[in-house]
């Protein structure tokens, strides 16, 4: 088999995994709760009683939506399939771990991107948010969604057959990220120690890019933010692969 044919087959398999996930997991209760309901509740919590213009909140809401929606599907897939004993079907099939992980990430990415369009469009059409850098915003959005989808896939490598365990771990990671990433307050308004802590969160760079895209100004150099998001993607994907390999060894 030539390299081109092998690559084509590999892409087809990844798409097949992604399609299967789309059909099965988008409507699962944990995905609806954390991917749809939670960002909606967060939006209301932000907007009610704070006396802020909704347009000002668009980058924050977008950040929360991206984090929660993109990482909603990933943590569910592998534990659910282990519980339902369909994971063995994947392991016996001619699919590499890469195909499987990328299929999971892509399905999380598409879900995150789709749902993130809601606050984006609402900000633009209803609240009148001005997007001053459309193309960079789209790139930032795609990178951020891919990054958090990869994080979701990494969480799903937890060697468990109980989806609730993975969802708990996901929340344990996601909630602190919201508070340490300049979502509620712009980074420049955070104390110095909080600013330092915020640098270890990929959400910090995503929200800063969203703010810059709406003309609010950036705290971190935009090229650095793009670069760091890419670095986080690479780390999550490779760490995810190693963690999934370990999980297979532990569980089987």
């Amino acid at each position: 088999m030539s390299k081109a044919t092998a690559l084509q087959a590999s892409i087809k398999r990844t798409i097949a995994i992604s399609k299967k996930n789309t059909k099965i997991y988008y409507m699962k209760p944990p995905v609806i709760i954390f991917g749809l309901l939670f960002p909606s509740v967060m939006f209301l919590a932000f907007i009610i009683g704070r006396g802020l213009e909704p347009a000002q909140l668009t980058p924050s809401i977008l950040g929360v939506a991206v984090l929660f929606t993109a990482s909603a599907v990933g943590p569910l897939i592998s534990p659910w399939e282990r519980m339902m004993k369909t994971y063995e079907r994947i392991l016996t099939a001619p699919i590499s771990l890469w195909n499987n992980i990328m299929g999971d990430i892509i399905s999380g990415f598409l879900f995150g991107l789709l749902i993130s369009m809601v606050p984006l469009l609402a900000g633009w059409l209803i609240f009148g948010t001005q997007f001053t850098h459309i193309i960079p915003l789209i790139i930032a959005l795609c990178l951020a969604v891919f990054c958090f989808s990869a994080l979701g896939s990494l969480i799903s490598a937890l060697p468990t057959e109980l989806p609730t365990n993975a969802m708990m771990l996901a929340n344990l990671i996601r909630f602190p990220l919201i508070f340490m990433s300049g979502v509620f307050l712009p980074l420049q308004e955070l104390p110095e120690w909080a600013q330092i802590v915020s640098y270890i969160s990929p959400l910090t760079y995503a929200v800063d890019l969203f703010r810059w895209s709406t003309g609010e100004g950036n705290f971190i150099n935009i090229y650095l933010s793009y670069f760091v998001l890419i670095i986080f993607i690479v780390i999550f994907v490779y760490w995810g692969k190693i963690a999934h390999q370990k999980a297979i060894k532990v569980l089987y």
């Binding site: 097949a16 099965i24 339902m84 369909t86 063995e88």
Partner: peptide
């Protein structure tokens, strides 16, 4: 270990794709 959320036909088409 069939995919319970997919139809019999969808299960088979998934296998065909992989």
């Amino acid at each position: 270990n069939v995919y319970g959320d997919l139809t019999a036909w969808e299960n088979l088409m998934f296998i065909a794709e992989i």
